[in-house]
Design a binder for these strands. Structure first.
Lengths: 328, 328
DNA sequence: CTGAAAGCGCTTACAG
DNA sequence: CTGAAAGCGCTTACAG
């Protein structure tokens, strides 16, 4: 039985024997001291009986903006984003409704994505791992996530985790590191690679000039790693770091297919510490980037922006989780 | 530089020296035979210069509904949904804009979720793996995904994959199967379990009455499996089937922690065939449910509904992918 | 405390 | 071919 007709504030008003304006006041909780208790009660009763719900389009048109918060994220095939989303959702109060938008695989959010959502008149926009060098400003508050160098961004303290990783590899006696990068233009990936190179040099290690790249799908990582494995080994590489765990899974798969022992012949590590990284063969060493923390911090910052405050942008802790893929 | 002020159709009209009505016609591509070429050209130029974009709220209010398609999905920690989303996005034409909504972990979409999005006046709503027995009808077209028994649903042919799995286990000599279910009320999970039981009986196997359940997170699956492992083994179980690969990962982890050899002492299989299922230890046997196919079929059905047609609901093929966790 | 009315920015008959 | 006007369903000053 498709709904016979949208129920409007006018219908509620008629039923409650009052005006549309009063209905609006009550429904929006702005009736304190403006509407008498008995009338407010009648309105609420009518709302329940009719199943009235404020029309979003009309409301945000009249008000200038609505209660939508849009989170624009790159391709969700990286389970990392599930955590981010959870953090955002758990932090946003009931006043706001979260909707997500996902870019195509391997493409980071850009200015045009923000523009497309501005027309929805959202209360605010969250942009996760945007492409570097984009102007993401809009007519509504925008908070960036994992966007080193971005305005109004919530970031990880990647340096700490990377240093722990390099120290760990150095302790194990590794001298030369191979790197598997993401293909995307995300600033966070550029930074991960640069930090690793810096830390390696500082620790007396070297990074092989043979650097692969792939989008964050396991398959793509496997085929990129498959192409490079021999070259890496010839170049004296004994440890490969991937820009994300999903890429590292690809390296594990390629190594297994080629009979390259991990970690005996090649140590492997990633970034993210996904839940499934504890069950890979072998279990994966990874720089933990707690996604829910990132989502939570970004949502808090957006909320603060609504209230006029623009708090200090936090830097979220990261750390190394050592498992068998390096320590074996 | 926050946008100085929303640019409206009135501003475009003034610049182009025409009326608002004409701007609307041109912008919506309804100008053929209604607006002269030179004027249409002037409007388009003004649109470009001003960077005008139709206001979604105003447009959908005037028109009755907008160009949004909402996909409501359960918790994204299951990477399966990333595939579904990709299928939907790649199929929806440029006329529509996809936005996602995610329920809390372990909760399936219900009627209230649909209601909440009706007020956005979307063109249509897609609901993935809804709770059983919910009335999901709305004032706009609704298509359900992986919702056995649901109205207007696009489903998998689960029976085939399950039969292949049971035949495979029977071939290997297994006689008694343990089952790890999802906690959610999704109809698709109820069906998976029932089909497995039926197929087992038909093949002369039995299913242990000891059935665990957990939400689809790896951690939850591991702790549920950890609780049941001894009981299963005592009960003569030699193979455990989990309702989703993420749950099966949990079983693998629990077994490894307890020193239970897989598949030597216990075979393990799941549903979904996620990308990471090829890199687990051991690699996981799974009933493949191609997520992108599901998304694509659902989007096509929605598109067809817009055009008045309600095509036959397809049943999407599933199949068994055998890996080391059973065959090893 | 309450309601009539203007206005949010569009779309779409309707007249010309 | 073109534009003035009504209307979509709200919210919010503004009068009373």
């Amino acid at each position: 039985m498709p709904s016979p007709a949208r129920v409007t504030a006018a219908m509620v008003a008629e039923r409650a024997g009052t005006s549309i304006a009063t209905v609006s006041l009550v429904v929006n909780g702005k009736d304190r001291g403006r509407v008498s208790a008995p009338i407010a009660e009648r309105v609420r009763a009518a709302v329940d009986e009719l199943g009235y719900v404020v029309d979003h389009a009309a409301s945000s048109l009249a008000r200038g903006s609505g209660d939508l918060v849009v989170l624009i994220a790159p391709d969700l095939s990286n389970p990392f984003f599930a955590e981010v989303i959870r953090g955002v959702r758990d932090t946003l109060t009931d006043r706001f409704q979260l909707v997500l938008s996902v870019t195509e695989r391997g493409r980071q959010p850009v200015t045009a994505d923000v523009r497309r959502f501005e027309r929805l008149r959202p209360a605010g926009i969250l942009v996760d791992a945007p492409a570097a060098g984009e102007d993401l400003s809009a007519g509504v508050p925008v908070v960036q996530l994992d966007a080193p160098g971005g305005t109004d961004a919530v970031n990880y303290d990647l340096a700490t985790g990377v240093q722990e990783l390099v120290a760990h590899l150095a302790d194990l006696g590794h001298r030369r590191i191979g790197y598997l990068d993401g293909t995307s233009r995300a600033a966070t990936f550029a930074l991960r690679r640069r930090l690793l190179e810096d830390a390696a040099v500082a620790a007396g290690l070297s990074v092989s000039p043979i650097v692969g790249s792939a989008d964050l799908a396991v398959d793509a990582g496997a085929s990129a790693a498959d192409d490079l494995l021999d070259d890496w080994l010839d170049d004296g590489v004994t440890a490969v770091v991937a820009a994300a765990d999903t890429l590292a899974y690809g390296v594990l798969r390629a190594a297994a297919a080629r009979g390259v022992a991990v970690p005996g012949r090649l140590a492997v590590a990633g970034f993210d510490d996904l839940p499934s990284s504890s069950v890979t063969a072998p279990a994966l060493t990874s720089v933990a980037l707690p996604g829910a923390d990132l989502g939570r911090a970004a949502a808090l910052r957006l909320l603060a922006t609504f209230d006029g405050g623009a708090p200090e942008a936090p830097s979220l802790p990261t750390w190394l989780v050592v498992r068998a893929s390096t320590a074996g």
